[in-house]
């Protein structure tokens, strides 16, 4: 069944702050095999003008996608998550995520489309730090594939 168009434009409450830890950034950088010292060495990060180690560009997805769970699991929206695949992903950064950040995400449903029985959901996550400064916006396109005919 097609998703309810009236959900377009709906904004969910900001999430409780996620505190970005140096060791979490290190763990993520190691998992992607990236030895860039800006991720693990404070002095190297400072030499680039950052107050502390920074996170790889895609790190913030773990935070925004968890926040998007509010949308995905909204029983009123009724998305069948077992059929969902990740279609597109985009980030626009005001500044890099860095250790010590306390980040809150505000998720908004930007668009709902139905194409050949697939439900396509565009979610925008605005990420702000503790002082309310914008850090990054993440756009996530999720595609719920049409159920196979029984």
């Amino acid at each position: 069944m097609a998703l309810d168009q009236s959900f377009v434009g709906r904004t969910y409450p900001p999430t409780a702050p996620y505190e970005v830890g140096r060791e979490k950034i290190r763990e993520f950088a190691e998992a992607i095999g990236d030895a860039n010292p800006a991720y693990t060495d404070q002095e190297a990060a400072k030499a680039l003008g950052h107050p502390d180690v920074v996170a790889p560009p895609t790190f913030v997805f773990a935070i925004t996608f968890k926040a998007a769970g509010q949308v995905v699991e909204d029983p009123q929206l009724g998305l069948d998550y077992s059929r969902v695949v990740h279609g597109d992903q985009k980030f626009a950064y005001t500044r890099p995520v860095r250790a010590g950040d306390r980040l809150s995400v505000t998720s908004t449903i930007e668009a709902i489309k139905s194409l050949a029985g697939n439900d396509i959901l565009d979610i925008r996550g605005e990420v702000h730090d503790e002082s309310g400064e914008h850090v990054v916006t993440a756009w996530t396109k999720l595609v719920a594939r049409a159920p196979e005919e029984a």
């Binding site: 950052h50 920074v54 985009k90 980030f91 626009a92 950064y93 890099p96």
Partner: peptide
């Protein structure tokens, strides 16, 4: 890494 201002 902060040189990347947009990525999609």
């Amino acid at each position: 890494p902060a040189a990347v201002v947009e990525y999609g």
